[in-house]
Lab assay of single mutants.
Amino acid sequence: TRVETATETAWISLVTALHLVLGLNAVLGLLLLRWQFPAHYRRLRHALW
């Protein structure tokens, strides 16, 4: 059971790390998009709101 718990903890930390990386990538991607295409982003925002 100790090995199972260790594997579980490893999986949880792995999934958490993946989520963090994906979240960071999403934020960075959005920031890059805003920086690269400000006009396009503004138009998109007007369409959404």
Score class of each variant (00 low, 15 high):
Arg42Met: 08
Val3Asp: 00
Leu18Gln: 06
Ala47Gly: 05
Thr16Ala: 11
Leu28Arg: 00
Glu4Leu: 06
Arg42Gln: 14
Leu22Met: 00
Gly23Trp: 10
Leu24Lys: 06
Val3Asn: 03
Trp49Pro: 02
Tyr41Pro: 02
Leu22Val: 04
Trp49Asn: 05
Trp35Pro: 01
Asn25Gln: 15
Thr1Gly: 03
His40Tyr: 07
Leu22Pro: 00
Arg45Leu: 12
Leu18Met: 09
Trp35Lys: 08
Thr9Phe: 12
Leu33Ser: 01
Glu8His: 14
Ala10Arg: 13
Trp35Thr: 06
Arg2Ser: 14
Trp35Val: 07
Ala6Leu: 09
Leu48Val: 10
Trp49Ala: 05
Val3Cys: 06
Leu31Ser: 04
Leu20Arg: 02
Val15Ser: 13
Glu8Thr: 15
Leu31Ile: 09
Ala47Arg: 07
Val21Ser: 00
Asn25Ile: 15
His40Val: 11
Val21Tyr: 05
Arg42Ala: 12
His46Gly: 12
Leu28Val: 11
Trp49Gln: 02
Ala39Gly: 06
Tyr41Asp: 02
Ser13Thr: 14
Val3Thr: 05
Leu18His: 00
Thr5Pro: 11
Thr7Cys: 04
Leu33Thr: 01
Gln36Arg: 09
Tyr41Cys: 10
Ala26Lys: 02
Trp35Tyr: 07
Thr16Asp: 05
Glu4Ala: 05
Leu30Ile: 11
His19Gly: 15
Val21Glu: 00
Ala47Ile: 11
Leu24Asn: 00
Ile12Glu: 05
Thr9Arg: 13
Glu8Asn: 14
Glu4Ser: 05
Leu24Thr: 04
Arg2Phe: 13
Thr16Gln: 13
Leu28Tyr: 01
Leu22Phe: 14
Leu48Asp: 01
His40Ile: 12
Ala26Leu: 10
Tyr41Ser: 03
Thr5Val: 07
His19Phe: 15
Pro38Asn: 04
Trp11Asp: 08
Ala6Val: 08
Leu31Pro: 00
His46Asp: 13
Leu18Ile: 14
Pro38Asp: 05
Thr5Ser: 04
Ile12Val: 08
Trp11Ile: 10
His40Gln: 10
Arg45Phe: 07
Phe37Pro: 02
His46Ile: 05
Leu44Asp: 00
Leu20Gly: 08
Ile12Phe: 08
Arg34Lys: 11
Glu4Lys: 06
Ala47Tyr: 09
Leu28Phe: 13
Gly23Glu: 00
His46Thr: 08
Val3Ala: 07
Leu22Glu: 02
Thr5Glu: 02
His19Glu: 13
Ala39Cys: 11
Leu31Gln: 03
Leu18Pro: 03
His40Trp: 08
Arg2Ile: 12
Leu30Cys: 07
Arg42Cys: 07
Ser13Val: 12
Arg2His: 12
Leu33Asn: 00
Gly29His: 00
His46Lys: 09
Arg45Met: 14
Ser13Asp: 04
Leu44Cys: 05
Trp11Val: 13
Val15Ala: 12
Trp11Gln: 13
Leu33Gln: 03
Trp49Ile: 06
Thr7Ser: 11
Arg34Asp: 01
His19Lys: 13
Ala10Met: 11
Val27Arg: 01
Phe37His: 01
Leu30Glu: 00
Glu8Asp: 11
Val27Phe: 08
Ala10Lys: 15
Arg45Thr: 10
Leu24Tyr: 03
Trp49Asp: 03
Thr16Tyr: 13
Leu28Ser: 04
Val21Trp: 12
Leu18Asn: 02
Leu24Gln: 02
Leu32Asp: 01
Trp49Cys: 11
Thr1Gln: 13
His40Arg: 06
Leu32Val: 10
Gly23Thr: 09
Leu24Phe: 14
Leu30Tyr: 14
Leu22Ile: 09
Phe37Ile: 04
Ala6Tyr: 10
Val3Phe: 04
Trp35Arg: 09
Ala10His: 13
Glu4Ile: 05
Ala17Leu: 13
Ile12Ser: 14
Gly29Trp: 13
Asn25Lys: 14
Leu32Met: 09
Leu18Arg: 01
Leu31Glu: 02
Ile12Trp: 15
Leu31Met: 04
Glu4Phe: 06
Ala6Lys: 12
Ala17Asn: 09
Glu4Thr: 04
Leu14His: 04
Val15Leu: 05
Asn25Cys: 15
Leu20Thr: 11
Arg34Val: 13
Leu14Ser: 15
Leu44Ala: 03
Arg42Leu: 09
Ser13Arg: 14
His40Ser: 09
Arg43Ala: 06
Phe37Leu: 07
Glu8Phe: 13
Leu14Thr: 15
Ile12Lys: 15
Ile12Asp: 11
Trp35Ile: 06
Leu22Arg: 01
Leu31Arg: 01
Val21Leu: 04
Trp35Phe: 06
Asn25Thr: 15
Leu18Tyr: 00
Trp11Phe: 09
Ala47Val: 09
Val27Ile: 11
Trp49His: 07
Thr9Leu: 10
Arg43Ser: 06
Val27Pro: 03
Ser13Gln: 11
Val3Ser: 02
Leu30Met: 08
Arg45Ile: 13
Leu14Pro: 12
Leu18Phe: 04
His19Tyr: 08
Thr7Asn: 08
Arg43Pro: 02
Thr7Ala: 06
Leu33Gly: 01
Leu44Gln: 00
Val27Gln: 01
Val15Pro: 15
Arg2Thr: 10
Trp49Thr: 05
Thr9His: 14
Gln36Gly: 05
Ala26Glu: 01
Val3Pro: 03
Trp35Ala: 07
Ile12Arg: 15
Thr16Phe: 14
Leu30Thr: 04
Thr5Leu: 13
Val3Arg: 00
Leu44Lys: 01
